[in-house]
C-alpha cells in the first residue's frame, strides 16, 4: 500500500474525524454519568488514530479541543496533548504494535509517557502547574513536600494519567475488534485488525 500524508486523507477517513471527536465527548459524558474514576475522553481520538492513521488521529485530537474551546478556551492549549496522543497512537498502529501483547504493553506505556509529558508542558508553562480539576491536589502535595514544579506535575500526570491512557487504548482496541472487516479493508490502517483468515482471502483475490 502507498503511504504518505495525502494518501491518508480519503473521504472515509475524513468522515471518521467528526465521529471520533463526538465519541470522545460522549465517552467523557458517560464516564461522568457513571462516576467512573477514569475519564474516557481520548476514546475517539485513539480509536480513529488506530484505524485511520497518525494524521487523521492528530486532527481528531486537535479539533476536539478546539470545539470544546468554543465554550472553554483553556481547553484549546490542551489540544497539544490530544494531538500528541493521536499522532503517537497512529504511528504505533502503523508500526503494527497493536497486533501483539508485547506491542500493546509498550504502546500503552509510551502513550502514557507522551500524554504525561505533553500535558506537563501545557500545564506548567501556561497555567502555572494547575489544571483546574481534582488532580491538582496531588500536584499540591508534591509541591508541599518540596518538589520542583516540573517534577510535581509530571509525577501527577503519570499517576493520574497512565491508567487513563491505557484504558482508553484498551477499550478502543476492544471496539475495533468488533468493527466488520469489510469496513476495515477500506481504511489504510485497518488491515492489521482484520482476522488473518480473511487477509489470506484478500491476497488470493488480489
Amino acid at each position: 500500500m502507498k503511504q504518505g500524508i495525502k494518501h491518508d486523507f480519503t473521504l472515509l477517513a475524513l468522515l471518521l474525524i467528526p465521529v471520533g471527536v463526538s465519541l470522545s465527548v460522549v465517552g467523557y459524558q458517560l464516564s461522568s454519568i457513571l462516576k467512573l474514576p477514569v475519564y474516557l475522553d481520548l476514546i475517539g481520538t485513539t480509536l480513529v488514530a488506530m484505524i485511520a492513521g497518525p494524521w487523521i488521529g492528530l486532527i481528531t485530537g486537535g479539533l476536539g479541543n478546539l470545539v470544546n474551546g468554543m465554550l472553554n478556551p483553556t481547553s484549546i492549549p490542551f489540544g497539544f496533548v490530544s494531538i500528541c496522543v493521536g499522532l503517537a497512537t497512529g504511528y504505533f498502529s502503523k508500526w503494527k504494535m497493536y497486533t501483539n501483547v508485547v506491542g500493546i504493553v509498550i504502546a500503552g506505556a509510551l502513550g502514557a509517557v507522551i500524554a504525561a509529558m505533553s500535558s506537563a508542558v501545557v500545564v506548567v508553562l501556561l497555567f502555572g502547574g494547575v489544571t483546574g480539576s481534582g488532580v491538582d491536589l496531588i500536584t499540591a502535595t508534591f509541591l508541599a513536600a518540596g518538589q520542583q514544579i516540573w517534577t510535581s506535575v509530571i509525577s501527577t500526570n503519570i499517576i493520574s494519567g497512565t491508567v487513563n491512557t491505557i484504558i482508553n487504548m484498551a477499550i478502543a482496541l476492544f471496539l475495533i475488534k468488533r468493527i466488520p472487516p469489510r469496513f476495515l479493508v477500506k481504511l489504510n490502517y485497518g488491515w492489521n485488525y482484520i482476522p488473518k483468515k480473511l487477509r489470506e482471502v484478500f491476497k488470493q483475490n488480489d
Binding site: V19, L30, L34, L40, I43, L175, P180, F183
Partner: peptide
Amino acid sequence: FLPMLGPLVLSSIQQT
C-alpha cells in the same frame, strides 16, 4: 460502560 458505548461506536463508525 461498554454496552453503552459499544453500539454507539459501531453504528456511528459503520454509518460513515
